[in-house]
Protein backbone atom coordinates (compact mmCIF):
# COMPACT_ATOMS: atom_id res chain seq x y z
CA UNK A 1 0.00 0.00 0.00
CA UNK A 2 1.83 3.09 -1.22
CA UNK A 3 -0.76 5.56 0.03
CA UNK A 4 0.33 5.69 3.67
CA UNK A 5 4.05 6.32 2.95
CA UNK A 6 3.02 9.00 0.45
CA UNK A 7 0.73 10.69 2.98
CA UNK A 8 3.56 10.66 5.53
CA UNK A 9 5.98 12.16 3.00
CA UNK A 10 3.44 14.81 1.93
CA UNK A 11 2.87 15.72 5.56
CA UNK A 12 6.58 16.11 6.32
CA UNK A 13 7.34 18.12 3.17
CA UNK A 14 4.31 20.39 3.52
CA UNK A 15 5.07 20.84 7.22
CA UNK A 16 8.62 21.80 6.26
CA UNK A 17 7.34 24.55 3.99
CA UNK A 18 5.10 25.95 6.71
CA UNK A 19 7.96 25.74 9.22
CA UNK A 20 10.25 27.57 6.83
CA UNK A 21 7.87 30.54 6.80
CA UNK A 22 7.12 30.24 10.50
CA UNK A 23 10.80 30.50 11.50
CA UNK A 24 11.03 34.20 10.60
CA UNK A 25 7.64 34.83 12.08
CA UNK A 26 8.69 33.19 15.36
CA UNK A 27 11.41 35.79 15.69
CA UNK A 28 9.23 38.78 14.85
CA UNK A 29 5.97 37.69 16.44
CA UNK A 30 7.27 35.30 19.05
CA UNK A 31 10.28 37.29 20.27
CA UNK A 32 9.46 40.92 19.41
CA UNK A 33 5.69 40.47 19.96
CA UNK A 34 5.00 42.47 16.81
CA UNK A 35 2.11 41.17 14.70
CA UNK A 36 3.62 41.56 11.24
CA UNK A 37 0.75 41.45 8.75
CA UNK A 38 3.25 42.14 5.96
CA UNK A 39 5.13 38.88 6.55
CA UNK A 40 3.39 37.24 3.57
CA UNK A 41 4.30 40.18 1.35
CA UNK A 42 8.01 39.83 2.17
CA UNK A 43 7.62 36.18 1.22
CA UNK A 44 6.00 37.22 -2.07
CA UNK A 45 8.81 39.73 -2.79
CA UNK A 46 11.39 37.00 -2.29
CA UNK A 47 9.48 34.68 -4.63
CA UNK A 48 9.49 37.43 -7.25
CA UNK A 49 13.21 38.03 -6.65
CA UNK A 50 13.89 34.37 -7.42
CA UNK A 51 11.55 34.42 -10.41
CA UNK A 52 13.10 37.51 -12.01
CA UNK A 53 16.65 36.40 -11.24
CA UNK A 54 15.84 33.15 -13.03
CA UNK A 55 13.97 34.76 -15.93
CA UNK A 56 16.29 37.69 -16.60
CA UNK A 57 19.67 36.43 -15.40
CA UNK A 58 19.07 32.66 -15.71
CA UNK A 59 20.16 32.40 -12.10
CA UNK A 60 19.23 29.14 -10.42
CA UNK A 61 17.01 29.73 -7.36
CA UNK A 62 19.49 27.92 -5.11
CA UNK A 63 22.15 30.39 -6.19
CA UNK A 64 19.69 33.24 -5.64
CA UNK A 65 19.28 31.93 -2.10
CA UNK A 66 22.81 33.08 -1.23
CA UNK A 67 22.16 36.51 -2.71
CA UNK A 68 18.82 36.77 -0.97
CA UNK A 69 20.29 36.43 2.52
CA UNK A 70 22.18 39.78 2.59
CA UNK A 71 19.57 41.37 0.31
CA UNK A 72 16.64 40.61 2.59
CA UNK A 73 18.67 41.41 5.69
CA UNK A 74 19.09 44.88 4.16
CA UNK A 75 15.40 45.01 3.22
CA UNK A 76 14.54 44.08 6.80
CA UNK A 77 16.92 46.60 8.32
CA UNK A 78 15.67 49.44 6.12
CA UNK A 79 11.99 48.53 6.55
CA UNK A 80 12.50 48.51 10.32
CA UNK A 81 14.22 51.89 10.32
CA UNK A 82 11.67 53.50 8.01
CA UNK A 83 8.40 51.83 8.98
CA UNK A 84 8.59 49.96 12.26
CA UNK A 85 10.87 52.02 14.48
CA UNK A 86 8.37 54.86 14.94
CA UNK A 87 5.72 52.43 16.24
CA UNK A 88 7.82 49.85 18.05
CA UNK A 89 6.88 51.28 21.47
CA UNK A 90 3.36 52.24 20.42
CA UNK A 91 0.23 50.21 21.13
CA UNK A 92 -0.37 46.89 19.40
CA UNK A 93 -3.16 48.58 17.43
CA UNK A 94 -0.72 51.09 15.96
CA UNK A 95 1.67 48.28 15.03
CA UNK A 96 -1.11 46.26 13.46
CA UNK A 97 -2.31 49.21 11.39
CA UNK A 98 1.26 49.96 10.31
CA UNK A 99 2.00 46.43 9.15
CA UNK A 100 -1.40 46.13 7.45
CA UNK A 101 -0.58 49.37 5.61
CA UNK A 102 2.83 48.02 4.67
CA UNK A 103 1.17 44.81 3.44
CA UNK A 104 -1.27 46.72 1.22
CA UNK A 105 1.53 48.92 -0.09
CA UNK A 106 3.75 45.97 -1.02
CA UNK A 107 0.88 43.98 -2.56
CA UNK A 108 -0.22 46.83 -4.76
CA UNK A 109 3.33 47.78 -5.69
CA UNK A 110 3.78 44.19 -6.89
CA UNK A 111 0.49 44.41 -8.77
CA UNK A 112 1.61 47.55 -10.58
CA UNK A 113 5.13 46.32 -11.28
CA UNK A 114 4.53 42.65 -12.05
CA UNK A 115 0.76 42.50 -12.89
CA UNK A 116 -1.61 40.04 -11.23
CA UNK A 117 -0.62 37.15 -13.51
CA UNK A 118 0.59 34.04 -11.73
CA UNK A 119 4.18 33.31 -12.78
CA UNK A 120 5.89 29.99 -12.35
CA UNK A 121 9.63 29.47 -12.10
CA UNK A 122 10.13 26.36 -14.23
CA UNK A 123 13.61 25.01 -13.71
CA UNK A 124 15.02 22.25 -15.90
CA UNK A 125 14.73 19.91 -12.96
CA UNK A 126 11.19 20.81 -11.83
CA UNK A 127 9.93 17.37 -12.84
CA UNK A 128 12.67 15.56 -10.93
CA UNK A 129 11.31 13.47 -8.09
CA UNK A 130 12.98 11.17 -5.62
CA UNK A 131 11.44 7.80 -4.83
CA UNK A 132 11.70 5.81 -1.66
CA UNK A 133 9.56 2.73 -1.35
CA UNK A 134 6.17 3.72 -2.68
CA UNK A 135 6.56 7.41 -1.82
CA UNK A 136 7.54 10.23 -4.14
CA UNK A 137 9.60 13.21 -2.96
CA UNK A 138 9.54 16.48 -4.85
CA UNK A 139 13.18 17.60 -5.07
CA UNK A 140 12.56 21.30 -4.42
CA UNK A 141 10.25 20.53 -1.49
CA UNK A 142 12.80 18.13 -0.02
CA UNK A 143 15.49 20.82 -0.19
CA UNK A 144 13.10 23.30 1.42
CA UNK A 145 12.37 20.85 4.23
CA UNK A 146 16.04 20.21 4.94
CA UNK A 147 16.74 23.94 5.03
CA UNK A 148 13.73 24.49 7.29
CA UNK A 149 15.13 22.01 9.80
CA UNK A 150 18.62 23.53 9.56
CA UNK A 151 17.24 27.06 9.98
CA UNK A 152 15.15 26.00 12.96
CA UNK A 153 18.06 24.29 14.68
CA UNK A 154 20.41 27.21 13.94
CA UNK A 155 18.01 29.85 15.22
CA UNK A 156 17.15 27.72 18.23
CA UNK A 157 20.85 27.46 19.08
CA UNK A 158 21.39 31.13 18.33
CA UNK A 159 18.59 32.24 20.64
CA UNK A 160 19.52 29.77 23.34
CA UNK A 161 23.29 29.97 23.54
CA UNK A 162 24.59 33.04 21.74
CA UNK A 163 25.03 36.31 23.61
CA UNK A 164 22.96 38.21 21.04
CA UNK A 165 20.24 35.57 21.25
CA UNK A 166 20.10 35.90 25.02
CA UNK A 167 19.83 39.67 24.64
CA UNK A 168 16.97 39.20 22.18
CA UNK A 169 15.12 36.99 24.63
CA UNK A 170 15.82 39.36 27.50
CA UNK A 171 14.47 42.25 25.44
CA UNK A 172 11.35 40.23 24.61
CA UNK A 173 10.78 39.37 28.28
CA UNK A 174 11.12 42.91 29.63
CA UNK A 175 12.34 45.72 27.35
CA UNK A 176 12.56 48.24 30.19
CA UNK A 177 14.73 46.11 32.44
CA UNK A 178 16.82 45.09 29.44
CA UNK A 179 17.38 48.75 28.70
CA UNK A 180 18.36 49.39 32.34
CA UNK A 181 20.95 46.61 31.98
CA UNK A 182 22.60 48.58 29.19
CA UNK A 183 21.09 46.72 26.25
CA UNK A 184 20.48 48.86 23.19
CA UNK A 185 16.92 47.59 22.72
CA UNK A 186 16.36 49.68 19.59
CA UNK A 187 19.27 47.96 17.89
CA UNK A 188 18.09 44.55 19.11
CA UNK A 189 14.61 45.16 17.69
CA UNK A 190 16.13 46.19 14.36
CA UNK A 191 18.37 43.12 14.32
CA UNK A 192 15.52 40.77 15.24
CA UNK A 193 13.27 42.24 12.56
CA UNK A 194 16.03 42.06 9.94
CA UNK A 195 16.89 38.44 10.78
CA UNK A 196 13.16 37.57 10.67
CA UNK A 197 12.82 39.16 7.23
CA UNK A 198 16.00 37.38 6.08
CA UNK A 199 14.42 34.08 7.09
CA UNK A 200 11.20 34.77 5.22
CA UNK A 201 13.26 35.97 2.26
CA UNK A 202 15.06 32.64 2.15
CA UNK A 203 11.71 30.88 2.47
CA UNK A 204 10.33 32.81 -0.50
CA UNK A 205 13.28 31.91 -2.71
CA UNK A 206 12.90 28.24 -1.78
CA UNK A 207 9.16 28.32 -2.45
CA UNK A 208 9.53 29.88 -5.90
CA UNK A 209 10.36 26.61 -7.74
CA UNK A 210 7.38 24.93 -6.04
CA UNK A 211 4.48 27.39 -6.18
CA UNK A 212 3.38 30.06 -8.66
CA UNK A 213 4.08 33.63 -7.60
CA UNK A 214 1.55 36.48 -7.81
CA UNK A 215 1.00 39.61 -5.70
CA UNK A 216 -1.11 37.88 -3.05
CA UNK A 217 0.88 34.64 -3.01
CA UNK A 218 2.05 35.18 0.57
CA UNK A 219 -1.46 35.21 2.01
CA UNK A 220 -2.08 31.50 1.48
CA UNK A 221 0.91 30.62 3.64
CA UNK A 222 1.12 33.31 6.26
CA UNK A 223 -2.08 32.53 8.17
CA UNK A 224 -0.92 28.94 8.58
CA UNK A 225 2.52 30.16 9.67
CA UNK A 226 0.88 32.34 12.34
CA UNK A 227 -1.10 29.37 13.58
CA UNK A 228 2.11 27.31 13.73
CA UNK A 229 3.88 29.99 15.76
CA UNK A 230 1.05 30.31 18.29
CA UNK A 231 0.34 26.58 18.39
CA UNK A 232 3.99 25.78 19.00
CA UNK A 233 4.35 28.41 21.73
CA UNK A 234 5.43 32.00 21.11
CA UNK A 235 9.16 32.30 20.51
CA UNK A 236 9.71 28.54 20.55
CA UNK A 237 11.53 27.55 17.35
CA UNK A 238 11.24 23.79 17.78
CA UNK A 239 7.61 24.23 18.84
CA UNK A 240 6.83 26.10 15.61
CA UNK A 241 8.47 23.35 13.52
CA UNK A 242 6.51 20.60 15.26
CA UNK A 243 3.29 22.62 15.09
CA UNK A 244 3.83 23.19 11.36
CA UNK A 245 4.14 19.43 10.83
CA UNK A 246 1.02 18.82 12.96
CA UNK A 247 -0.98 21.31 10.85
CA UNK A 248 0.28 19.66 7.68
CA UNK A 249 -0.67 16.24 9.03
CA UNK A 250 -4.20 17.41 9.82
CA UNK A 251 -4.46 18.93 6.32
CA UNK A 252 -3.12 15.93 4.45
CA UNK A 253 -4.83 13.18 6.43
CA UNK A 254 -8.08 15.19 6.66
CA UNK A 255 -8.06 15.76 2.90
CA UNK A 256 -7.53 12.09 2.20
CA UNK A 257 -9.97 10.63 4.71
CA UNK A 258 -12.75 13.18 5.09
CA UNK A 259 -12.43 15.49 2.09
CA UNK A 260 -10.35 18.41 0.92
CA UNK A 261 -13.11 20.88 1.70
CA UNK A 262 -12.70 20.09 5.42
CA UNK A 263 -8.99 20.57 5.88
CA UNK A 264 -9.08 24.23 7.00
CA UNK A 265 -11.95 23.45 9.37
CA UNK A 266 -9.95 20.64 10.93
CA UNK A 267 -6.73 22.51 11.66
CA UNK A 268 -8.57 25.60 12.87
CA UNK A 269 -10.62 23.44 15.23
CA UNK A 270 -7.39 21.95 16.55
CA UNK A 271 -5.95 25.44 16.96
CA UNK A 272 -8.95 26.68 18.93
CA UNK A 273 -8.95 23.56 21.08
CA UNK A 274 -5.25 23.93 21.98
CA UNK A 275 -5.67 27.61 22.80
CA UNK A 276 -8.60 26.86 25.08
CA UNK A 277 -6.77 24.05 26.87
CA UNK A 278 -3.28 25.50 26.79
CA UNK A 279 -3.17 29.22 25.94
CA UNK A 280 0.66 29.26 25.86
CA UNK A 281 0.64 26.77 22.96
CA UNK A 282 1.84 23.18 22.87
CA UNK A 283 5.44 23.88 23.87
CA UNK A 284 5.22 27.43 25.22
CA UNK A 285 6.07 28.45 28.74
CA UNK A 286 2.96 29.15 30.82
CA UNK A 287 2.46 32.91 31.01
CA UNK A 288 4.83 33.54 28.10
CA UNK A 289 1.91 34.58 25.92
CA UNK A 290 1.45 37.62 28.17
CA UNK A 291 5.10 38.70 28.06
CA UNK A 292 5.87 41.99 26.48
CA UNK A 293 2.23 43.07 26.45
Amino acid sequence: MEVIPQLVVSTILLGGLYALIAVGLTLIFGVMRVVNFAHGEFLMLAMYAAFWAFTLLHMDPYLTLFVSLPLFFAVGWVSYRVVMRPVIHASHNAQVFTTVGLSILLQNAALVLFTADAQFLRTDYYTVVLRLGGAVFNLAQTVAFVIAVLATVSLFAFLRWSYTGKIMRATAQDPQVASLMGIDTGRIYALTWAVGITCVGAAGVLLAPIYPVYPTAGLQFVLIAYIAVVLGGLGNMAGALIAAVIIAAVEVIGSYTIGTAWKEVLYLMLFIFVLVVRPAGLFGQRGAEALGT
Partner: peptide
Protein backbone atom coordinates in the same frame (compact mmCIF):
# COMPACT_ATOMS: atom_id res chain seq x y z
CA UNK B 1 -15.42 8.52 -6.23
CA UNK B 2 -17.26 11.41 -4.64
CA UNK B 3 -16.79 14.86 -6.20
CA UNK B 4 -13.91 16.68 -4.49
CA UNK B 5 -14.14 20.40 -3.76
CA UNK B 6 -11.18 22.42 -2.50
CA UNK B 7 -10.28 26.05 -1.74
CA UNK B 8 -8.39 27.41 -4.73
CA UNK B 9 -5.59 28.77 -2.53
CA UNK B 10 -4.81 25.27 -1.30
CA UNK B 11 -1.13 24.41 -0.87
CA UNK B 12 -1.27 20.68 -1.52
CA UNK B 13 -3.44 18.50 -3.73
CA UNK B 14 -1.48 15.27 -3.30
CA UNK B 15 -4.16 13.58 -1.14
CA UNK B 16 -6.77 14.27 -3.83
CA UNK B 17 -4.48 12.91 -6.53
CA UNK B 18 -3.91 9.74 -4.51
CA UNK B 19 -7.68 9.26 -4.33
CA UNK B 20 -8.01 9.88 -8.06
CA UNK B 21 -5.28 7.36 -8.79
CA UNK B 22 -7.20 4.77 -6.77
Amino acid sequence: GAPEYYTFTTNDLTPVILKLKA
